[in-house]
Amino acid sequence: MSAERPTNVLIVGVGGQGVIMVSKVLAALAQRQGLQVKQSEVHGMAKRGGSVFSHVRFGPEVWSPVIPRGEADILVALEWAEGLRWLDALKRDGGTFIADTQQIVPPIAFRDRRPGGRSAYAPQAPAAILEMVGTGYALDATRIAAGLGNTRFANSVLLGALSTALPFAAEAWLAVLRQFVPPATVEPNLQAFRAGRDWVESGARPAEPAARPADAAPVATHAHRVEINASWCKGCNICVRMCPERCLRLDDNGIAALVRDGACTGCHLCEWLCPDFAIRVHDEAAPSPAR
């Protein structure tokens, strides 16, 4: 049996980002060096904004199409939180982590809509993660790409960064990349590749924490209480239909009632929309209990 183990590169991101394009470039490059290559991906749900991953393995002999857990030599993340999700795939010693600090925040991250609610998106700063993993590069590839004309070139920036961690010549990379990008965008993609390569070779520095959408939690200034005046309610159902958190129901007597108190965010919509002024949302002095 060959003592030489295959090189394992795991490429991850979000549906539509181009994970498959990146892995195809790498697979084609390795194949041209005369190596055996296997590239495995699972799509299906991926297109609908889900996680996408692609395993690329190459070497003198490759068996499993998937990388055994904890044996990825390199983890390339096209999106920051996806990088974190797959961190366990990376070798504990000697693994290289390359991630775009770009954040694609899924709708589910914004589930806590109560006053003071926080985004559920990965809270740790890139610098803290890099400190943990050893060899790691967190670069704002998307911003670098934007500087070259289009955020879609971010893939090529990351390929450039990836190229520094593998023994293939830069010219070989460029030759393959040329064939995998649309003819009209060859030049900017090659530039993007060089920019990514330069970013690493010019001495990697931990990226400053990227600007995060709605990062700081808002301060909850008050609690709220819903008061329903049953004798004024005529059961028109408007408040029930319009409540964003669906906390209201008509009770057995056809009167509006608060059934999910904990879900109420105090947005006042029911109060404003009630044609009979039967609902009041009181803002009370005490802040909401801390979560």
């Binding site: 709708p107 914004f110 808002p218 964003p244």
Partner: peptide, 29 residues
Amino acid sequence: CTACQSCMNLGCPAIGWDEATLDGRHKVK
């Protein structure tokens, strides 16, 4: 925007939180 976040019930990936807030809740973007 009153930060009621009714629009977020669509689950649309294009809608997220804005930095601006009202009564301790995020307006949308």
